[in-house]
Simulated scan of single mutants.
Amino acid sequence: MVIPYGRQHISQDDIDAVTEVLRSDYLTQGPAVPAFEQAIAEHCGARHAVAVCNATAALHIACLALGVGPGDLVWTTAVTFVASANCALYCGAEVDFVDIDARTYNIDVDALAAKLEQAAQSGRLPKVVIPVHLCGQSCDMAAIHALGQRYGFRIIEDASHAIGGKYRGEPIGNCRYSDIAVFSFHPVKIITTAEGGMAVTQDDELARTLRLLRSHGITRDEQDMSQPADGPWYYEQIDLGFNYRMTDMQAALGASQARNLEAFVAQRHVIARRYDSLLADLPLQLPWQHPDCYSGLHLYVIRLKLDAIGRSHREVFEALRADGILVNLHYIPVYRQPYHARVGYAPAAFPQAERYYAEAISLPMFPQLSQQEQDFVCARLRTHLA
């Protein structure tokens, strides 16, 4: 038995949706892309959704749309995938990190507030802050928004883990407390387009810029052109954009998957509650859910109470892998990566991120995880913690 930490579920309806596109006149930019964008916008309660080839591309053009460039500073959380930081570097900006909250593993709002106060005194405030909804649980966006109002930074929600989740009873992605939110549709995420991403926003001008940047900076809208069109073939490149488009095949799969979004997230909650029950007596810190949040539950992360067990973090991890349970660790703190470490970040500045990295393991979490598989995971974990 081999059990991955995450796995896509592809139904016959999904296959039929992609097959329909393959038999159509459009494989790349056709009617399926705007249909998928509309479905996600409607789910989130956002005015605009802009589909792209992956969430990293969405983060990149989100930074560009907010004017991030050389000389600017962007802050994000210490524990995230490297894309949350790299998107700022692509724009020529600098990046810095904020420690995580000990219970949610999201950006620590108190640490953010303290760092902002120091930055204000030194005159080096961030232009953009990118809070990451780790594991699918929203950051405290109201508090981060209030800090943004006070210190003048813009906000991109990296909601790559979190589509289908809610914050204060409203869908993650409605951008009530941010300028732009970004989703990922990688196969292990809540819904998939194989590869793909989406940027959502309430701002008309930001949406126009995002659409321009995803397709080479080219427009066919005469309102944006420097001269009247030479003919119906005419287009103009008015900015330096990228080939970040999503295909119709991907969008058709995404739209089909989106019809099951709420059911997928609900089943993840069933699995999480069962984990909570089966693991309650073990020397573990189980995931904590803030009462303001309904998590998308992309990941179920446990933390080992190493003082109470006779094995190291690595030993437990490798023992589970040897059992065919393909656990993972999300994530290595970004400042530890060699590319970033040469800047000189001090691990001591991120004590909660360091503790998390020393203790965290992501258990299998996907809607089709069977009770038999889950029982096996828990039984083997119990054995290795004895």
Rank of each mutant, 00 (worst) to 15 (best):
Asp101Ala: 05
Arg355Pro: 02
Gln374Met: 15
Ile156Ser: 09
Leu299Gln: 11
Met225Ile: 05
Gly92Glu: 00
Thr209Leu: 12
Asp323Arg: 09
Val98Pro: 03
Ser215Arg: 06
Ala199Lys: 01
Leu304Trp: 10
Leu284Gln: 13
Gly197Glu: 07
Lys127Met: 12
Thr209Met: 12
Ser295Thr: 10
Leu147His: 05
Ser256Ala: 08
Ile361Ala: 06
Ala65Ser: 15
Tyr151Phe: 15
Glu157Asp: 14
Ala346Val: 08
Leu210Lys: 00
Asp108Gly: 15
Thr76Asn: 14
Gly123Pro: 10
Ser295Pro: 06
Thr104Ala: 13
Ala114His: 00
Ala341Ser: 09
Gln285Phe: 08
Ala207Pro: 14
Gly71Val: 09
Cys91Val: 02
Leu297Tyr: 13
Phe350His: 07
Asp224Leu: 15
Val129Ile: 10
Ala272Gly: 13
Asp307Met: 01
Val301Glu: 08
Ile144Glu: 06
Glu373Leu: 00
Arg259Thr: 02
Thr209Gly: 08
Ala341Pro: 04
Ile10Leu: 15
Trp288Asn: 02
Arg124Glu: 12
Asp281Met: 03
Ile180Asn: 03
Cys44Ser: 09
Arg273Asp: 15
Leu381Tyr: 02
Phe185Ser: 03
His133Asn: 15
Ile218Asp: 01
Met246Cys: 14
His48Asn: 07
Leu116Pro: 05
Tyr300Met: 09
Asp96Cys: 01
Leu282Val: 04
Arg321Gln: 12
Gln202Val: 00
Asn328Trp: 05
His60Glu: 12
Gln352Ile: 09
Ala386Gly: 14
Ala194Cys: 11
Asp375Glu: 03
Arg311Leu: 13
Tyr275Phe: 07
His290Trp: 00
Val316Gln: 03
Gly241Val: 00
Ile309Tyr: 03
Leu299Ala: 12
Ile40Asn: 04
Asp221His: 14
Glu262His: 02
Val301Asp: 10
Glu37Asn: 14
Cys378Asp: 04
Tyr105Glu: 07
Asn260Gly: 04
Gln267Met: 11
Val95Ser: 01
Asp203Trp: 02
Ile10Phe: 10
Val132Asp: 01
Ser226His: 13
Phe242Ile: 04
Gln8Asn: 12
His269Thr: 06
Leu369Phe: 06
Glu354Tyr: 06
Ser11Phe: 04
Arg268Gly: 06
Leu64Ile: 01
Tyr331Ser: 13
Pro347Trp: 06
Ile15Ala: 09
Ala46Ser: 15
His269Val: 00
Ala255Leu: 08
Pro31Thr: 04
Tyr339Glu: 14
Gly231Met: 01
Ile15Asp: 05
Leu304Thr: 12
Asp276Glu: 13
Ala162His: 01
Gly152Tyr: 04
Arg154Trp: 02
Ile190His: 07
Ala143Cys: 06
Ala35Ser: 11
Ser277Gly: 09
His216Tyr: 15
Leu326Met: 12
Gly173Phe: 11
Asp281Ile: 03
Ser362Ile: 11
Ile190Tyr: 05
Ser370Asn: 04
Val188Gly: 05
Val21Leu: 08
Val2Ile: 12
Leu116Gln: 03
Trp233Val: 03
Asp110Glu: 12
Asp179His: 14
Ala258Gln: 13
Ile155Met: 12
His60Asp: 13
Cys44Met: 00
Ile100Pro: 02
Cys139Ile: 09
Asp25Gln: 07
